[in-house]
Design a protein around this nucleic acid. Structure first.
Lengths: 328, 328
DNA sequence: TCCGGGAATGACAGCGCTACCATTTATATT
DNA sequence: AATATAAATGGTAGCGCTGTCATTCCCGGA
């Protein structure tokens, strides 16, 4: 009752194991009649090749490892989708590792992923841990970091500049006449970069430094709380930039609850271009991130590299765009 | 510059390959001093075991395959998280397959997953295709279907009754005095089951049959459009049950735009308990689905089975609860 | 002192497949 | 007809690890 092996298929098709192997992987190398017999035998036996054995023998696993901080976050989901789409064309498959934002988990996970001999590794985020960096460097496989630009990637980085996004939003808010501004974001590096760009742009424009409000997680309720706190601390605030749309939706709803006029009394902006942000009224001004494209491009780079194509630039900036809507 | 093998570690630790293997997998069988030398050698060489070779030799892959229709959907994300949490305790890893709701893709994908010799397979949804069912049966590994109860699962099913959820919501709406009702949902089996339960409960209560409105996808915009269409087709409708919270949010926002009083003039209900649904005003009445628990339980069942524990019931109903809020 | 028994370790074969090279057969060229 | 060339196929070895069984070593008890 155990699963059939390639030898059984070969016997049934009246040929040898190696021919069955070829019929599956490179049909052009097998005569049509033989191929037909092999395929019939495969179907009859329900044969499914053992890819562990295949990986071991061929030294090609057909796997791309993906390291994500958490799959809960729907914004990363688009990136995963893009990556899947791109690598599927090359017959590659995704092995997912979800490290839950923990440094220790990250290292264990990398070992588990690398042990499966992936042909490339894609990381959502940038690798900061030095030990991990050097470990990845030694692997001698493509490593693509995403979602955040860094001047010295382990190998290649595909993303956009969080700092530039923060600065762009600062300039937009200033252009609308809002000068006393606040920033709300988490404690992760991406949010910090957005805050820094935001503050720097304000400084350059001679505007007052922003109030920086930190949140522990990024739920709508957190956004509400942050806005409430800002209004009690700095009631004269004229505009708030939230590091994510989810937080911004909380801000917008809190304004609704309190009867605060948006954008007249207070401007609200977010980042991420969620559908809900577009549908609320006033519609949320936000930064569109090419989340799907980031994954897609990462996948294309992986596929290109595995085909031995010439390496492109190490830093791929996919940009972003400020979508001006009614909330600013 | 290639990766070190177990032999190199053994040589450096002054022992044999098999002892290194044991030191990693069952440390109690190796003397502490030897173990320490082995670990030192592993660290010095940066050795990472080749799990393809390990799988092949031991016939244990340490992998659980997961088949999801799409990872875009954040509601499945909680299930994935629960599953990951449960199997991580047993040192198992997730191999993700995303079949994008296509039947053909599903079969290809299963072959790709099964080829990696997973120790169990978890499916989000129920397997309907007969050929696929018999293929899964032949695998002789645990197969857990989720998110939908079925009387005859391939092996085990963990979920809740979509039909019962629809019926519960129908009874709730009736109890609030809403009698002319409508249902909005996609064309998938889960939505169909909810619609059926909804309609049946109405019939049993002697209420008029619901208007059934189908949507092609489940975005906020779809929910808005569906509500608009219902109002133009059947202006006397008193309540709408949307198959998902995302659709219901669209319905709620459309009511806001049109100045329709909720729930006085029109009651709105959803399913899924998204945060946004809770935060809008009026807050959305919805059905809470134990999404995380479904994944978690599926994982626990897998782990239990692999440990050879006695099999439990084949159908595990985790139930649901109607969260009554202000929109009904 | 000898022996039995368990702890620690190792030798060997083989998991199922594919790379490499050799061989056979069919087809084209002179 | 003889040779060159390509297409089709097969034999053998080995990918890196672990299961199985054998061996060595040490200790306590008779």
């Amino acid at each position: 009752m155990s699963r059939p092996r390639i030898e059984e298929v070969a016997a049934r098709a009246g040929t040898s194991a190696i021919t069955v192997s070829r019929a599956l992987r490179d049909p052009s190398k097998v005569a049509p009649a033989t191929r037909a017999r092999v395929m019939a035998a495969i179907a009859a036996l329900g044969y499914i090749p053992n890819l562990s054995a295949s990986s071991l023998a061929s030294r090609r696993s057909g796997i791309v490892g993906l390291l994500v901080p958490t799959i809960d976050n729907s914004i990363f989901a688009a990136t995963v989708q893009g990556l899947t789409d791109a690598i599927a064309t090359a017959g590659l498959q995704l092995l997912l590792g979800d490290f839950r934002y923990s440094e220790e988990g990250e290292k264990t996970l990398v070992r588990a992923l690398v042990g499966r001999q992936p042909e490339a590794l894609v990381v959502v985020g940038v690798v900061r841990d030095a030990a991990l960096r050097s470990m990845l460097l030694q692997l001698a496989i493509p490593v693509i970091e995403t979602w955040d630009l860094t001047a010295k990637p382990v190998d290649i980085v595909v993303g956009f500049s969080n700092k530039a996004a923060g600065a762009a939003m600062a300039r937009h808010l200033l252009s609308r006449g809002h000068r006393r501004l606040a920033f709300v974001g988490g404690r992760d590096h991406r949010a910090a970069a957005r805050a820094q760009g935001f503050a720097t742009a304000l400084k350059e424009a001679g505007a007052p430094a922003p109030l920086i409000e930190s949140v522990d997680s990024a739920t709508i309720a957190d956004g509400r709380r942050a806005l409430a706190h800002i209004l009690s601390t700095a009631p004269k605030t004229e505009g708030v930039f939230f590091a994510t749309d989810v937080l911004a939706v909380g801000g917008l709803l809190e304004c609704q609850s309190r009867g605060i006029a948006v954008p007249k009394r207070l401007a609200v902006a977010g980042l991420g271009d969620l559908e809900i942000a577009r549908e609320l009224s006033p519609a949320l001004t936000t930064v569109r991130i090419p989340a799907y494209e980031i994954g897609r491009r990462a996948g294309e780079i992986v596929v290109g590299r595995l085909r031995g194509e010439a390496a492109g630039p190490r830093v791929v900036d996919l940009g972003f765009s400020v979508l001006v809507r009614d909330s600013t």
